[in-house]
Design a protein around this nucleic acid. Structure first.
Lengths: 114, 114
DNA sequence: AAAATGCTTTAGCAATAACTTGACTATCTC
DNA sequence: GAGATAGTCAAGTTATTGCTAAAGCATTTT
């Protein structure tokens, strides 16, 4: 990972950690403060803050501070980019399996014998 | 990541690296050998072998060696688990936004005033 | 105004990740 | 059987990750 990380790198990287996925699962049910996110996770508030920063720079989560509470919520666009990538790969795989099916069904190879 | 990594951890972790995503993109168009995977990636064959190992233990890719060639292909089940997780989150977010819409439309708060 | 709450910052540390190089082992090809 | 090809293994290096602990700083609450 020499070059600068793309948004896809950052998003998948962010989702690779179970703690961060737990945070995203919580936030997908509605906004929460940092302390609320920390509650079920046996870990310092500082650590949660660091995970939150990763989620924010990845574009999956947004937040704003009002008073002494920081409220966080999902940015749907973040989930969209990762979801789209996976769906595109699934589509490619399906097309490939389809070609394989045709190949097995045909008496002659359509590539070598057009 | 103290406890043993789940398949979701491994899959997202695997997809977090641009080199491995390039390999997956190639394989989603059809099987390939290790050298074919390495061709467009300016990196030693050894490094590709290590990336391949990550992809295999994550469940995204499978491979088998015949003669001196190792052929690799996508395991669709691998993409499925990550895809499902993301779609489930997107669905949660939508439900949440819907609730927010109702809340804004209603003259009274449906939670505090049932 | 004092104390509690809710973060934030910094520094440090152990573990992991992503390579490289070099040596090695099969398997084809000539 | 000599040489090229395809991949594997082990060791070493450097950078990044995921924490912790301790101190700091605004906002509320009492």
């Amino acid at each position: 990972m020499l070059q600068q990380a793309t948004s896809l790198d950052l998003a998948f990287q962010a989702l690779a950690d179970p703690v961060r996925r737990t945070m995203v699962e919580r936030l997908s049910r509605g906004p929460a403060t940092v302390s609320e996110l920390a509650r079920p996770l046996a870990m310092s508030l500082s650590a949660i803050g660091q995970h939150l920063r990763v989620l924010e720079t990845s574009g999956l989560v947004r937040s704003a501070k009002v008073g002494r509470l920081r409220t966080c919520w999902i940015d749907p666009a973040g989930l969209l980019v990762t979801g789209r990538w996976i769906i595109a790969r699934q589509a490619s795989v399906e097309r490939d399996l389809e070609r394989l099916g045709e190949h097995l069904a045909a008496p002659t190879d359509p590539w070598r014998d057009p």
